[in-house]
């Protein structure tokens, strides 16, 4: 049990370092999409919500877990769609207008 926790702490600490390394190099032009994309990434809580919803019984637990699934789905789907929309607008040259 303690070993298990230690491994999890290892993973957490290493991931924090990776995160700091990667994200400190994001230019400020991309700060909004960065925030929006990481917003979508924390929607990964959805898998936790699904796992919980599939394993609980009783009205209270089911209500709570289904509400969690709903919020997390909004977070994931909305987050990725908004980020894609924002990034779709970033263009290098004025000449490269989208051909719609």
């Amino acid at each position: 049990m303690v070993n298990h926790l230690l491994i999890e702490i290892y993973i957490f600490v290493l991931a924090v370092f990776v995160g700091f390394q990667l994200i400190s190099k994001v230019p400020s032009v991309l700060h909004t999409p960065l925030m929006s994309a990481t917003n979508a990434i924390h929607g990964i809580i959805l898998v936790g919500a699904i796992a919980l919803a599939a394993s609980v019984h009783g009205a209270v637990d089911v209500t709570i877990s289904v509400a969690a699934v709903f919020l997390a789905t909004l977070n994931v789907v909305g987050g990725y769609v908004v980020t894609d929309r924002i990034l779709g607008m970033f263009k290098k040259k004025s000449a490269e207008r989208p051909t719609e």
């Binding site: 993973i11 957490f12 995160g19 994200i23 960065l34 924390h42 990964i44 898998v47 936790g48």
Partner: peptide, 26 residues
């Protein structure tokens, strides 16, 4: 999200949560 990963023993939650936590902090 990362703390939920500890609760559910779910590594991908820990990693994703740590990435977002680092980004938000920066």
């Amino acid at each position: 999200a990362a703390a939920t990963g500890f609760l559910l023993a779910n590594n991908v939650l820990i990693i994703a949560g740590a990435l977002v936590g680092a980004s938000g902090t920066i």
